[in-house]
Write a protein that binds this DNA or RNA. Structure first.
Lengths: 339, 339
DNA sequence: ATGAAAGCGCTAACAG
DNA sequence: CTGTTAGCGCTTTCAT
């Protein structure tokens, strides 16, 4: 703190000042190292005076590990995603790692970025956006870098994963709608195939088929509010033939609702019941009060970080898959809750 | 790619395989190094075959710099903040750095985290949440680590900053409201002092005073939707004495609106005009159509990253302050726009 | 254009 | 409990 030297201060400087060896300096800054309390204090004092701080690059080089953990996420400014990332960052830190963030834009080459992360000797990577190619997944395995995929499906049995149970999701949506009296159903979901989003929509449609209830399908451009607003126009045209709609994301649901209110003066749930999915914060806002299915971001991220830690401890561990259940949230866009 | 050895492959292995020295391997992976095209290709080929990748820790140790840039952000799951972070991450990457993310929770000790970042020899830090203490700011300067503060005010002339012009913001809100016919004004803002948020509210109140128009003040618990919903109860009680309200954040505004609609059946803008601030995505949603003032996250972040880069290039550069202007966005919660 | 040699700052055996 | 001795994997003069 006091010095204002040009050269950065190293453990050597501290050692000299404290009158000990460099090893002692290292030990003083290492949890549970073999060092007497007296020496440690002496070192810490000298370090403080010199304004010393451990160089993590050097430490990492020696120990062969940075304690960096990569987070790969796209659409970071989407409510659900940003919540995931916030929780993930906090959780990663509380496990003693530092999150290094890779935000992926639609046209980005994940391979390349993921590859860069590996250069940093990351302790692990958590991916919650596009699915990396098998090639890069292999590369992670080769380097023994734990990789966990969130909501990318568990079909590929080569990485640990955490995902919602799309089957259960689809059936739950069906149940929520039918038990509150809806019988002429519809579903809106994006075109782009995605394990969790289109997956639950399809599961819903399948459930309808297996129960012999017809279901109208509306395909949106993507899973955003704007896309919901757009497709809402089509839903409006079919208003006389449906009384309940499942939207694959809350954002989509809110877009649909606003469009329907604006152009058809629809009242919810009287004119139409709607169920969303995710339970983002906005779903609870007064203007929507959307009935939905909660995808617990906290549970999901905790599971992912836990899987990662476990694999760090034991790289040979068998591949794990965590299946997450959604829970129904009844608000004001469905007529009644069931017990 | 082919090997499956236990030991990580190093530049030494590649060198041997390519029949050159380790220096050549290094050069092959360095932009614009002095190496013949032929040698480079030979090395690259050997590297590919071995599955070699440069160890950034070792490189960083040698060159004394990681190309990591820290982002310190709180309330990451707030719409405006997550947008900032997404843009910042993209921008940092496009400048050739990697973003390392520190999410700060209300009770966290920023000092400590910031301090950890310094251990990584970060090339720079961008802070967009709580203001670091002068002590840590000093520490950054001592270590010659560029630090730029977003929306923390420029009072402290010891770090580069980017912030909105609170004065202009307050006056703009006043103008938007009065020019569309509101004359009995109110402002809602959080208690916690914050440069940008409470700053603009105060500037608004000051402007009112200087124009001799009375202004009712409502203090919310924080700047969230929920806090807006709460304080909306108080606004409702004063409905007969106000016709225009400025909410210090869009979130607050939307909370207030929903409460007012729910409990007092208020119609906007007929019964009350409202202006928010930030222009988050939700402000444009059909249920709100909030008139607001846009705080351009992109412009803000680009400026911050630019300042950082410039300071990396030239550490002795004079301290810079970028003052951002807000632009009015007229939607449906004000009666008219002015030309 | 290339190779040899000397570290970057730290930790981890190994002795004592 | 402490000091000595070797590197970790890379870049970088400095010769050639």
């Amino acid at each position: 703190m006091t010095e204002d030297s040009e050269k950065p201060v190293t453990s050597f400087d501290v050692a000299r000042r404290a009158g000990v060896s460099r090893s002692m300096v290292s030990r003083a800054f290492t949890e549970g190292a073999n060092i007497s309390e007296k020496s440690r204090e002496k070192v810490l004092k000298a370090a403080e005076e010199l304004g010393y701080r451990v160089n993590f690059m050097a430490r990492g080089l020696q120990t062969r590990q940075s304690n960096l953990v990569g987070i790969v996420a796209s659409s970071l400014d989407t409510p659900f995603r940003s919540r995931q990332v916030r929780i993930a960052a906090r959780e990663i830190i509380s496990h003693g790692y530092r999150p290094i963030l890779l935000t992926v834009e639609p046209d980005d080459d994940i391979e390349q970025w993921l590859s860069v992360m590996l250069n940093y000797n990351v302790a692990g990577v958590i991916v919650t956006s596009a699915t990396p190619s098998p090639k890069i997944i292999q590369e992670c395995r080769r380097l023994r870098t734990p990789l966990v995929l969130i909501n990318r499906g568990k079909n590929q049995d080569i990485a640990d994963t955490v995902q919602i149970d799309v089957q259960q999701a689809g059936e739950l949506a069906y149940t929520m709608l039918t038990r509150s009296g809806a019988g002429r159903l519809a579903v809106v979901h994006p075109q782009t195939p995605s394990y969790s989003v289109t997956g639950r929509a399809h599961a819903f449609a399948d459930k309808c088929s297996s129960e012999n209830v017809e279901v109208k399908e509306f395909i949106s451009a993507n899973q955003s509010y704007a896309a919901g607003y757009d497709i809402g126009g089509n839903v409006g045209l079919a208003l006389d033939r449906i009384d309940g709609v499942f939207c694959a994301t809350d954002l989509l649901a809110m877009g649909v609702m606003d469009r329907l209110r604006a152009d058809w003066n629809v009242r919810f749930p009287d004119d139409l019941q709607v169920v969303g999915c995710d339970d983002i914060e906005q779903a609870g806002w007064g203007a929507y009060q959307l009935s939905t299915m909660r995808q617990d971001a906290e549970e999901q991220v905790l599971a992912a970080v836990r899987q990662m830690s476990e694999r760090i401890e034991n790289p040979e561990m068998e591949i794990q898959h965590f299946n997450q259940m959604l829970t129904p949230i009844f608000r004001k866009t469905t007529l009644s809750s069931y017990d």
